[in-house]
Design a protein around this nucleic acid. Structure first.
Lengths: 202, 202
DNA sequence: ACCTGAACACCGTTCAAGT
DNA sequence: ACCTGAACACCGTTCAAGT
């Protein structure tokens, strides 16, 4: 029963806790209890709570799929892997937006994205332009999806905006649920691909 | 010296506090002190801290620019107004990503965006497809910009990723600073515009 | 080396009391 | 109606003490 704690075990326990009770209820003491230990024991493995949260953020990434030789296929596969990572632990999602990710799996995703754009014929500044457009879409779509999935859920009281002042919002409301998130994502992805191809042509 | 507090005055004080000391240091007691009052007084104007944070999030929006008759010009103007709102109070930015915005100014932005897409010839599902692609880009770009502006700042210790394992990341590093955020934003915006025009054609 | 237990300086929130 | 002051149930973090 000595030295049973590890960074990995602590991260897994924290992910359990956060998934069940929400990010706000992740405290050092409760995390200790989940591990059968005093809360202060965690400080022997993480300098402080922020370092633990960073580890949680990095933990959503798995290694990206290997290149297939077809950059268009890899573009799709990497996009889907990225979206899957962002959606893996909804409670951890906010942590991914406010801190640079420097762990190996996250960096391997980025390297693989650059490799796709390189294979598409892009170089230097133009490659980075394409990368930021792609990255912005991935992150932005994840934000929209996350809000849609968790937003109107229990909690905040909400009333529909008045139709007189917001006619389009009101009229379009009945079309909101037409597409699934998967379809919707792929449609936007098609536009990003078109943008990349246009950049690659010159 | 009675009843001097108002929701507006409290929100302004909170924005001052947050801009100077960071979101983490916004507490009810410190906010009270900033207003020359006990912290508990705030509870007479906001049900709880979350309601105050919601008001802070809504406060970054100003009314959108009026339509000009040229939907392409309006597309650009609204995009820039949206980006300006997201960047207005960097410390408030994280609050914008995890809660649906239901205040009048935020809804007017959305209504104006729909109006632009309507003027471009889009209807129903297709209009919403375009809206989500546009919205994803705005939000995602803001996340990338926010991270770039605040990320490598004081704080987290960071070492560059090893060049052997991440050759493209390392090689591209020297091109990272080539574009300004404004240029970069407009480049991506051009791609979104192209996507909208393609959707509008059929 | 790793964990404990007490302590410190805070939190958000409730509530009776004042004016 | 609005603000105060004390209280409650927590926080993150430090640190001497144990094994």
């Amino acid at each position: 029963m000595r030295g049973e704690l590890s960074r990995d075990g602590i991260v897994r326990a924290a992910l359990r806790l956060v998934t069940e009770d929400g990010l706000a209820r992740l405290t050092m003491r409760r995390l200790g209890a989940e591990l059968g230990v005093e809360g202060m024991a965690v400080y022997h493995h993480f300098r402080n709570k922020d370092e633990l949260l960073q580890a949680l953020a990095e933990a959503v990434f798995e290694d990206p799929p290997p290149p297939s030789g077809d950059w268009r296929a890899d573009f799709r596969a990497l996009s889907h892997a990225g979206r899957a990572a962002l959606n893996r632990y909804p409670e951890v999602f906010p942590l991914l937006l406010s801190r640079p990710l420097t762990g190996k799996p996250a960096l391997r995703h980025r390297e693989a994205q650059y490799a796709v754009l390189h294979a598409a014929g892009l170089r230097d500044e133009r490659l980075l332009d394409a990368s930021r457009t792609w990255g912005s879409y991935l992150l932005g779509y994840a934000v929209v999806e996350h809000e849609a999935r968790t937003g109107t859920r229990s909690g905040r009281d909400w009333s529909p905006p008045p139709a007189a002042e917001f006619p389009l919002i009101s009229a379009l409301d009945r079309f909101q649920a037409t597409r699934t998130f998967d379809e919707q994502f792929d449609i936007g992805l098609g536009h990003v691909l078109a943008a990349i191809e246009q950049l690659a042509r010159g």
